[in-house]
Simulated scan of single mutants.
Amino acid sequence: MTTSTALTTDQARTRLHELTVIDVRTPGEYAGGHLPGALNIPLDRIQRALPDLRHAADRGDVLVVCASGARSENACRILAENGVTAATLTGGTGAWAAEGHELHRPQGTPRAAWGMERQVRLTAGTIVLLGLLLGLVVHPAFQLVSAGIAGGLVFSALTNTCGMAAVLAKLPHNRPRAADLDNTLAALRNR
């Protein structure tokens, strides 16, 4: 695979047995359902996992997965900058589930209530409405809050990054259990 490779859900399903699948979502999202055999290395911990990911890529193909494909593309870019070849799943776990493919959940782990993209939409919409309401009731300057969120959304779309998602990912409800990176990396080494 090359650094810019993307696999469709059918291609990934066919090759799942030969791929090392890395899920870069938060532990809460991962617990809500992930591709069979996927290991959870959250995007904000990817740098720490580089030596083991490099070793995994030397042994075979690595597939990086997230909810929709945006975070996995960012992870693939980081990996490529560090000499690790990986592919991303087109449409992420959302597309995987939409195609009717099975998602695994750790035993005893409650299903995550909302995915990160839904949380971002709720948070951004709430802040925009609050800014507009406060701008009408308290002082017009509060409308700048709404403008700031709008500017952030435009920047997010242009750069394919999301600062709000990075902040929300650190909230306790998105980390119902700490990502056990040491055990995950040990499992990655033993594949």
Rank of each mutant, 00 (worst) to 15 (best):
A80S: 14
S146P: 11
A113D: 05
S68Q: 13
H104W: 10
L63C: 04
A124N: 06
T85S: 14
A169F: 10
D23T: 06
R118M: 08
T90R: 13
V154C: 07
C162P: 11
V167G: 07
N40M: 00
A169K: 07
A165F: 14
T90I: 04
L134N: 11
D182T: 15
C76L: 04
R111H: 12
L134M: 15
D180L: 05
A75K: 07
G33V: 08
G125D: 12
T184E: 15
P42D: 00
T93G: 03
R71T: 06
R59Q: 12
R175K: 10
P172A: 02
T123V: 15
R77E: 15
M116Q: 02
L171I: 05
W96V: 09
N160M: 05
M116A: 00
L35T: 01
L43E: 06
V138R: 10
L7T: 01
L134A: 15
C76W: 06
I41D: 02
S4H: 10
I41F: 03
L103G: 10
A98T: 07
A179V: 06
V154M: 12
L63P: 05
V65F: 05
A157C: 01
A70K: 11
A186D: 13
H17K: 11
N174P: 12
H55Y: 01
P176A: 06
R45T: 10
L63W: 04
A157G: 15
A87T: 03
A124K: 06
T93H: 07
Q107C: 02
R59P: 02
P42K: 00
A57W: 02
H139Q: 08
L144W: 15
G115I: 11
A150H: 09
P42T: 00
A87W: 03
V64A: 09
L103V: 07
A86R: 04
G151T: 09
Q11A: 13
V120K: 10
W114L: 10
A165S: 15
T85I: 11
A31G: 02
A124H: 03
S4P: 00
